[in-house]
């Protein structure tokens, strides 16, 4: 049986500065469209109910859970995923800091933390280490105990504002 509400929609999504046309059911999440239609599999899905934050992307610059957003809602917005961070094969300062501080082990939560951190650093460039810890409590990591993630984001914050960590 077919419900009009389930009829596929043709969307244009702007992801990482590229326009993509996709045909999706209204119930299809942005996370699924990014991962399975656009094959941008860096965005991970850890809980599908908006708690773990592994699917965090930037929508118009603000961190958002891609598992809680329908793809149809993202039309007209600027969507950024982890694939946008490195430029010309060079890791971004934040990615480099994650590596330097061993802020990732299995790496499953990492794209979500990177995108969350980019959002936090854009919004609070003067964030202290405790501010950063508080903000990063939005996402779950099961491997690191968080300390090195906080360190990496704090180091990036300091270097971006030209101070020492």
């Amino acid at each position: 049986m077919s419900h009009p509400v389930n009829d596929p929609h043709l969307l244009t999504l702007s992801v990482n500065d590229a326009e993509h046309e996709v045909v999706v059911e209204p119930r299809r999440t942005l996370a699924d469209v990014l991962r399975h239609d656009l094959r941008l599999t860096g965005t991970h899905v850890g809980c599908e109910h908006g708690v773990c934050g592994a699917c965090t992307v930037l929508i118009d610059g603000a961190p958002a859970r891609a598992c809680l957003v329908f793809a149809v809602q993202a039309e007209g917005a600027d969507v950024r995923t982890v694939e946008s961070l490195a430029r010309d094969g060079e890791l971004s300062d934040l990615q480099q800091a994650f590596g330097d501080h061993h802020a990732l082990q299995c790496g499953f939560c990492t794209p979500g933390f990177l995108m969350l951190a980019e959002g936090v650093l854009a919004e609070q460039p003067d964030a202290s280490r405790e501010d950063i810890r508080e903000a990063l409590s939005a996402n779950l990591c099961r491997c690191t105990g968080y300390q090195t993630i906080v360190d990496a984001v704090h180091a990036t914050a300091c270097s971006r504002r030209g101070t020492n960590a």
């Binding site: 599999t41 961070l85 490195a86 790496g107 990492t110 990177l114």
Partner: peptide
């Protein structure tokens, strides 16, 4: 020595391959 992790570049750039990434 705490050498840079070999796993990091792909995991940091979203180019790891987890089971659900396989199609």
């Amino acid at each position: 020595a705490s050498v840079p992790r070999r796993e990091d570049p792909r995991l940091l750039t979203g180019r790891g391959r987890f089971v659900d990434d396989i199609a």
